[in-house]
Design a protein around this nucleic acid. Structure first.
Length: 418
DNA sequence: TCTGGGGTCCTGCCTCGT
DNA sequence: TCTGACGAGGCAGGACCC
């Protein structure tokens, strides 16, 4: 999501040179705020802040009217309100944003099958192969923008370039409701004068490290010795930045993305010292992680927890399991065991549970039938199903499973169910 | 003044096996 | 049997992205 306030918007001319381009980066403008306006037109033209009005919420998104007051994403809502006291605070409706996102992505896919969603509100499109059908990349960009506005009712900005990195930078500059085309031969002159902070992957820390060595623009990166660059930001990032600064970016548009971890975390309204409460919260978070793992038919081999204290000091602990699992109870037990290893005298403001090192669940969606672990997984899946489809049919299925009278799940082979 | 939640990736350190 | 080099993997912390 863009963070600028909309000043410096650019729209390329209709007859712009797009020679050598193939990648579109499409970014919805102030997406959450735009969806809220769509659903409540009385908000149009007002400064809007998306975030919870109470507690320790931060700004998820803000309309351009609010950004003009200095309101930015990730800023505490309380601070945003001081900057823009007239702003309307709207609680987020993530399900609704997902639904609109699906609508937008479907429009992208009607132009090219090579669509890589980056987040709920942005995507890369490779339009190289659709030239005969839809025209040149800049023509496709115009069509995409027009259709999103006509069919969904919100605006987007598009960067058109030869590479992902340049397309992404171009869409940021074009915001809001703009389009910027960077022909392949203009790539270097486009990149050179821009600040290092504009590069994808350079945040506040890396920018500070680079600027401290006199490296302020992308041209400076290009001209810096690998040694100096490496000392500033480390070997991996320096090598990548050097390539990107030369306009080299061989990354293709990837339509498949595999999740590498699944986690949940929660910041409490007030800092907590009650250990029993915290242990119960760990179990609850682990249960949600387990549910998502089972739905995705994954197991986790490594459980990690995150604890943030009242002074914002954050510690992580992780543990690799002897047997991978998708059972919330087992993830929770591992999380609690990790929690015991942490010095918990200080009040805690956040705890989180994450499943890492994911792998496909063995033995299919419900796991293995022939061991206790498999059966615990069945129980978990039944819990999910009860939540989704109601209790009557699922309770009946569980009853059959438990009919051995031990109060625990019984092997389905006893009932001829396998 | 106050700092969410969901992720990915990198780095440094340590242990262990060869 | 002991020792050092080396790579792999586990773990913790941090930067970055939306």
């Amino acid at each position: 999501m863009g963070h600028g306030d909309g000043r410096g918007r650019i729209v390329s001319d209709a007859d712009v040179d797009d020679t050598g381009t193939r990648i579109l980066h499409v970014d919805m403008d102030a997406f959450y705020a735009a969806v809220e306006v769509l659903d409540d037109p009385s908000l149009r033209g007002l400064p809007i802040i998306i975030g919870a009005p109470e507690g320790r919420s931060v700004v998820s998104s803000a309309s351009y009217e609010a950004r003009r007051y200095g309101v930015r994403a990730a800023m505490p809502v309380s601070q945003a309100m001081r900057l823009c006291p007239t702003a309307r605070i709207v609680p987020p409706h993530f399900d609704r944003y997902q639904a609109v996102s699906r609508q937008v992505m479907a429009i992208f896919e009607s132009f090219t099958p090579l669509v890589e969603p980056l987040s709920v509100d942005e995507a890369f499109l490779d339009v190289q192969g659709v030239r005969r059908l839809w025209g040149s990349p800049s023509q496709v960009a115009r069509l995409v923008r027009a259709r999103v506005e006509a069919e969904v009712g919100i605006t987007c900005s598009v960067g058109v370039a030869a590479t992902k990195h340049v397309a992404k930078m171009a869409s940021t500059i074009a915001k809001p409701d703009g389009m910027l085309v960077v022909a392949a031969r203009e790539t270097q002159s486009f990149l050179d004068p821009r600040p290092v902070r504009a590069m994808w992957g350079v945040g506040p820390k890396a920018a500070e490290a680079l600027e401290g060595r006199g490296i302020r623009t992308i041209r400076d990166i290009r001209e810096a010795s690998p040694d100096v660059l490496g000392r500033a930001v480390g070997p991996a990032l320096s090598a990548r930045l050097a390539q990107l600064a030369r306009g080299e970016d061989a990354r293709e548009v990837e339509t498949e993305r595999v999740e590498k971890s699944i986690g949940h975390e929660e910041t409490f309204d007030t800092d907590i010292t009650d250990r029993a409460f915290l242990r119960a919260e760990l179990l609850r978070l682990a249960d949600r992680v387990g549910s998502r793992l089972r739905r995705a038919e994954w197991e986790t081999a490594t459980v990690s927890i995150k604890v943030r204290f009242d002074d914002f000091r954050t510690v992580n602990r992780s543990q690799t399991l002897a047997d991978p699992t998708a059972v919330g109870q087992r993830i929770g037990e591992a999380a609690q065991s990790l929690f015991e290893q942490i010095d918990r005298r200080d009040p805690i403001r956040l705890i989180g549970v994450r499943a890492e090192n994911l792998r496909p669940a063995g033995g299919g969606a419900l796991g293995l039938w022939d061991d206790d672990e498999g059966w615990r997984r069945v129980e978990g899946a039944l819990d999910d199903a009860m939540a989704r489809f109601g209790t009557s049919m699922i309770s009946r299925a569980r009853h059959i499973g438990r009919s051995d009278g031990r109060g625990a799940a019984q092997h389905p082979k006893a009932h001829g169910l396998d």
